[in-house]
Amino acid sequence: MRTRALVKRIIRQFIRDKRTLAMMFLAPLLILTLVNLVFSGNDYDPEIAVISSQEQMASQLEKADKSFTIYENKTLAAEDLENEKLDAILEINPPTTKITLEGSNPTANKAVMMTVEKTLKSLTPKNNQQTSMETEVTYLHGSADMESFDYIGPFLIGFFIFFFVFLIAGVSFLRERTTGTLERLLATPMRRWEMVAGYVLGFGIFTIIQSAIIVSFSIYVLDIMMAGSIWFVILITLMLAVTALSLGTLLSAFAKNELQMIQFIPLVVVPQVFFSGLFNIETMADWLQPLSYLMPLTYGGQAIRDVMIQGGGWPEIYDEVLVLAGFSLLFMILNVLALKKHRKL
């Protein structure tokens, strides 16, 4: 009952504060769009040579997508690939499929792989076992280890949700203290856990909306690679937001004003960027690596990637989701304890 009153109040306050709403919902979209522009530019139309012993297959491919061109001669194709007139050569000689990528442009590589995969899938009847046909990928230049927006995008979605929710929730809870309303609430029979629960639920409603907007925008507008289910991504980002929410309200207990709350960003938020997997953790010093296990974003980022890039489902992400739930619960309990500083009961 008391928690519900708190939830209702938070919703009303939020709706009045249009600018904060905009920061929560629109700022991540703006930044994601910028990063997307920086990393991927326009949609890339690959040029792919098709060399096949099966003429019917080759012409089907050519018809299916304008990227494909039939080459009779392998030497000529290799020459065009070297001169960057082609992005890849696709050789289909059942039972093997061989793709040779030019390889220096990650965007082109990705475009080739997606076009080939999509086209082959559409050409192969669903009940045909040939889908399991082995594909061998070789690179003329470069390698498969590359970064592009598809790779960092899932991580950035998690990061921006974490960052903005952490900041807004932290400052709101802090303001409750600096304006004296926390003390006023403590003079009521409201229990400390009811207060923490009220905050998590009240803000939680807005983080659901935020997650849905950011994830949908990334997938449908920025056209980020999405192999799995959008619902799983929303679930993970929501868990990540709740973690950020509980951490932000907890840490606000240790800040005296808004400026001190902002000082937590380099201490708490920025390290997560370095240790949570956006940068390669395996190449860091051994003693630094375990730090990544302490970062909520490690689990969130990994889980979002599992779904968006690898098409993972519940079996792949449940452990990360549980760890995030654990983090949230821990922060909430600590917050209930931290409020003891203000009232013993």
Binding site: K8, R12, Q13, D17, T179, T181, E183, L185, T188, P189
Partner: peptide, 25 residues
């Protein structure tokens, strides 16, 4: 209890503030 500082939610209307405190009780 009426605190020395006005512990009110300034974004909300007077009525909404009272509704909030009333619900808590």
């Amino acid at each position: 209890f009426m605190a020395q500082s006005d512990a009110l939610y300034v974004e909300l209307s007077g009525k909404e503030n009272l509704e909030f405190f009333a619900s808590i009780y």
